[in-house]
């Protein structure tokens, strides 16, 4: 792991600026069928984020560098990428925390089609998300007031409400990488959010969907997803809770 104490060891200057090399995986189908690494060196504040560095590269060095970002503050989940071999949000990763004395590798998240540079096709990811019905399902008349829920009932699924659909967990999952139809951690997390919601009435349906051959039972409990989640969701625990719900439902 990175030690915070190491910050600034890479050519410290009075202004806190350091020279950092970014090794970025470039792919442009309009130029070549092959992806390749390209190095960019820039002088940047060590307390800046990787996203700031990407902006600087795009604005000052190479305008063709392509990546997604919207809010740039860790809420929208657009800029998940593989930084130094780990899935992170570029807007939440400080350069000083990821050993800037060595070249910092930045590449697109794995398991999804790379369209250009760091941009991937998220459609299969959202397909799996839609498959688990990530919306409130109720029966009967709509109440005239809010649907009440106790603090305990709300706390039951609090962890999984934090998901921002950045795909960092799903694209870190070795089962998702391989040639399968596994739903992926993010879809299961969002199913968990409604399965354990006391106001929702389609938990049984969602469990049946996740009981599929490519549902929760393909999870191998490698904890990659929990490690990758930029929101600190205990993803693997949520998947295990869905498994437990499936088993206790039947026996």
């Amino acid at each position: 792991m990175e030690q915070p104490g190491q910050s600034g060891t890479a050519e410290p200057t009075t202004s806190g600026m350091i020279t950092v090399t970014f090794r970025i995986r470039r792919f442009n189908p309009e130029v070549s069928a092959d992806a390749s690494w390209e190095d960019f060196t820039l002088e940047i504040d060590s307390k800046d984020r990787v996203l700031d560095a990407l902006h600087r590269i795009k604005w000052e060095q190479d305008g063709t560098l392509t990546f997604r970002r919207s809010c740039a503050h860790g809420i929208c989940g657009s800029d998940a990428m593989r930084i130094n071999g780990r899935n992170r949000l570029a807007c939440k990763t400080l350069i000083k925390d990821i050993s800037p004395e060595k070249p910092i590798t930045v590449e697109a998240i794995k398991g999804l089609t790379v369209l250009k540079d760091l941009v991937v096709d998220m459609e299969p990811f959202f397909q799996a998300y839609r498959d688990v019905m990530p919306f409130l399902v109720t029966s009967g008349n709509e109440p005239t007031r809010e649907r009440f829920q106790s603090d305990e009932d709300r706390a039951r699924f609090d962890d999984t409400t934090k998901c921002i659909l950045c795909a960092a967990c799903t694209s870190s999952c070795p089962i998702y990488w391989n040639d399968g139809q596994y739903f992926g951690p993010a879809a299961i997390v969002n199913a968990h959010r409604f399965i354990f919601d006391s106001r929702d009435e389609a938990g049984e349906q969602r469990l049946e969907i996740l009981n599929d051959k490519d549902g929760v039972w393909r999870c191998r409990t490698t904890f990659n997803c929990t490690d990758a989640c930029p929101r600190g969701i205990e993803v693997t625990k949520a998947i295990q809770e869905v498994k437990r719900a499936l088993i206790t439902r039947r026996f």
């Binding site: 130029v31 089609t113 096709d121 299969p124 391989n178």
Partner: peptide
Amino acid sequence: YSVDNPAPVIAPPRAR
């Protein structure tokens, strides 16, 4: 490869 003739991309495993 050009703008009108882009290289094929790698299909994702989960494509339907």
